[in-house]
Computed example of a mutant assay.
Amino acid sequence: MRPPLAADERTQLIGWLDHQRSLVRPKCEGLGEIDAHRKLLSTSPLMTVAGLVAHLRWVEYSWFTENLLGTPDTGQTPWTEGGHPDAEMFVDDVPLAQLLDEYDAECKRSNEIVAGFSLDDVERLVVRDAGRASVRYILCHMIEETARHLGHLDIIREVLDRVNGD
C-alpha cells in the first residue's frame, strides 16, 4: 500500500519504504528452490533471487541496527574484516522461505528502531569519513536500495519464468 498523498515527511518516508519492502515477497512467490538460487548472470553470479533477499535483509540490519543504533558487530553478521564484500549473498544452502521470513523480521526491527529517532538524528556508529547520516538520509537511501533490487528481482523473474511485476 502506498503512503497517503498528503502526509508529513516521516509518514511519507516510512510509507514509501514499507511499500517497497512489501513488494519483495510477492516477487518471489511461486519460485522453487532451484530457481531461487539459480545463477543467471555470469558476471554477477551472486545475484540470485535468494541472494538479493539475503542482501536486502543484511542492508536493513547494517543501516538500522549497526549504524543507527551503534550495535557493534561481534560476529552476528555474515561479513568479516577482510572477507568477501558480498558475503551476505552466499546463501545457496538457505531456503528462500527462511530468507523471506528473516527479511520481514528485520524490516519490522528496523521500523521499531526508527520509531525511537527523529528524522534529524544521526547514526551512532561512524562508518565513513564524510560524517554520520541522518535518519532522513537512511530512509531515503533504503527506499532507493530496496527499489533498485526490486528491479533486479523483476529482471531475474522475467528471465526465469517470464513473470514480472509492477
Results as ranks from 00 to 15, higher is better:
158 E>F: 08
118 S>T: 14
58 W>D: 03
69 L>E: 13
84 H>N: 08
73 D>H: 12
138 I>E: 00
18 D>T: 13
44 S>D: 08
13 L>W: 00
37 H>F: 02
7 A>G: 09
82 G>H: 05
165 G>N: 13
93 D>K: 15
78 P>R: 02
145 E>D: 14
75 G>R: 02
92 D>T: 02
154 D>H: 14
149 H>E: 05
92 D>I: 02
114 V>N: 00
76 Q>H: 07
51 G>C: 02
104 D>Y: 07
110 S>Q: 04
159 V>H: 08
104 D>K: 06
56 L>E: 01
118 S>F: 09
159 V>T: 11
5 L>M: 15
27 K>V: 05
21 R>W: 07
15 G>Q: 03
54 A>M: 00
2 R>I: 13
81 E>N: 07
98 Q>H: 10
30 G>L: 14
64 F>V: 04
106 E>L: 02
55 H>N: 02
109 R>A: 07
59 V>W: 04
127 V>I: 12
93 D>W: 15
72 P>R: 04
123 E>C: 11
148 R>C: 14
91 V>M: 00
132 R>N: 05
161 D>G: 13
78 P>E: 03
142 M>K: 09
141 H>P: 05
107 C>A: 13
12 Q>F: 13
5 L>K: 15
160 L>P: 00
68 L>V: 10
132 R>E: 01
127 V>E: 10
93 D>Q: 15
27 K>S: 07
161 D>L: 08
71 T>Q: 13
139 L>Y: 02
118 S>C: 08
72 P>C: 03
54 A>D: 00
106 E>N: 05
162 R>L: 09
33 E>K: 15
136 R>F: 12
65 T>W: 05
58 W>F: 15
107 C>G: 01
55 H>R: 06
8 D>H: 14
80 T>Q: 08
18 D>C: 11
104 D>E: 15
131 G>H: 04
148 R>H: 15
80 T>E: 08
7 A>C: 15
78 P>N: 03
100 L>Q: 00
65 T>K: 06
18 D>S: 14
39 K>P: 02
163 V>R: 09
166 D>R: 10
83 G>A: 08
154 D>M: 13
150 L>K: 05
63 W>D: 04
50 A>K: 01
8 D>I: 14
115 A>Q: 11
87 A>R: 03
27 K>L: 11
92 D>R: 09
7 A>R: 09
122 V>H: 05
164 N>V: 11
7 A>I: 10
88 E>K: 02
63 W>S: 04
96 L>G: 01
129 D>G: 13
69 L>I: 12
165 G>A: 12
5 L>S: 15
68 L>F: 12
47 M>S: 04
105 A>P: 05
162 R>K: 14
126 V>Y: 04
59 V>K: 06
92 D>L: 07
108 K>S: 12
15 G>R: 03
140 C>S: 11
120 D>P: 01
27 K>H: 14
125 L>Y: 04
54 A>N: 00
